Measured scan of single mutants.
Amino acid sequence: LELTLRVGDKTWHFKDVDEEFVRHLEELLKRGAHEREIEEIIREWLR
C-alpha cells in the first residue's frame, strides 16, 4: 500500500505501508486525534 497523509501543514508519503498501521491511523482519525498524537505515531512507525 502507498499512503499520503496530510496533517496540519505537514505531508507524508509512505510506500509499502503495513495495513495494520493504516487501520491504526484510521482509528486515531475517527476519534479525533490531535495533530501531535498523529505525528508521534508516525515517528514511532518510522523507527
Rank of each mutant, 00 (worst) to 15 (best):
E19T: 12
D9T: 07
L29A: 08
D16F: 15
I42S: 01
E37H: 08
V7E: 01
E35I: 13
H24C: 04
T4S: 08
L3M: 06
F14M: 04
K10M: 09
F21R: 03
T4R: 13
A33R: 08
E26K: 14
A33Q: 07
F21S: 04
L28K: 09
L3H: 06
V17F: 03
D16L: 15
E40I: 09
K10D: 03
T4W: 10
D16W: 15
D16M: 15
I41R: 09
R23Y: 08
E27L: 13
I42D: 00
V17T: 15
L25Q: 00
K30F: 13
R6I: 14
R23V: 06
E35N: 08
L5A: 01
R31L: 12
R6F: 03
G8Y: 02
L25M: 09
A33K: 08
L5C: 04
E26F: 15
E20F: 10
E44R: 10
K30T: 11
V22M: 05
F14Q: 00
E20Y: 13
E37Y: 11
G32D: 04
L46I: 12
R43F: 12
V17H: 08
K15I: 08
W12Q: 00
L1I: 10
L5M: 05
D18S: 14
E37Q: 10
E35A: 09
L5V: 15
R31Q: 13
G32I: 04
R36N: 14
E44V: 07
I41E: 09
D18T: 12
I41K: 12
E19M: 13
R23M: 09
L28F: 05
I42G: 00
E40P: 03
H13E: 03
V7Q: 01
E40M: 11
K15T: 07
F14G: 00
I42E: 01
F21L: 04
V22K: 04
V22P: 01
K30W: 11
E2C: 07
L46H: 08
E27K: 12
F14A: 00
G32H: 06
V17G: 15
D16I: 14
W12S: 00
R47T: 08
V22I: 06
L29T: 06
E19Y: 15
I38F: 09
G32F: 06
T4F: 08
H34V: 08
E44H: 10
T11Q: 05
T11K: 03
W12P: 00
I41G: 03
R43I: 11
R31D: 09
D18G: 05
D9C: 09
E44F: 08
R43P: 01
E27H: 11
T4Q: 09
R23I: 07
R6W: 03
E37G: 03
L3T: 04
E39Q: 06
G8A: 03
L29E: 03
D9P: 03
I41H: 10
I42K: 00
V7N: 02
W12Y: 15
L46R: 05
W45Y: 15
I38L: 08
K15Q: 08
E35T: 12
E27F: 13
D16R: 14
R6S: 13
W12C: 01
E40Q: 12
H13R: 07
H34M: 09
L3C: 03
T11L: 12
H24M: 12
L3Q: 02
E35M: 08
K30Q: 11
F14D: 00
I38C: 04
L25K: 00
E2Y: 08
L46W: 07
E26D: 07
L28H: 07
E35F: 11
D16K: 14
T4Y: 09
K10S: 06
R23N: 10
R6L: 10
K15P: 04
E44A: 12
E27R: 12
L28T: 06
H13C: 04
E20R: 10
V17L: 03
E35Q: 13
D9K: 06
E27N: 14
L29K: 04
L29C: 05
T11D: 05
E44P: 00
L5I: 15
W45K: 04
R43K: 12
K30E: 08
H34S: 14
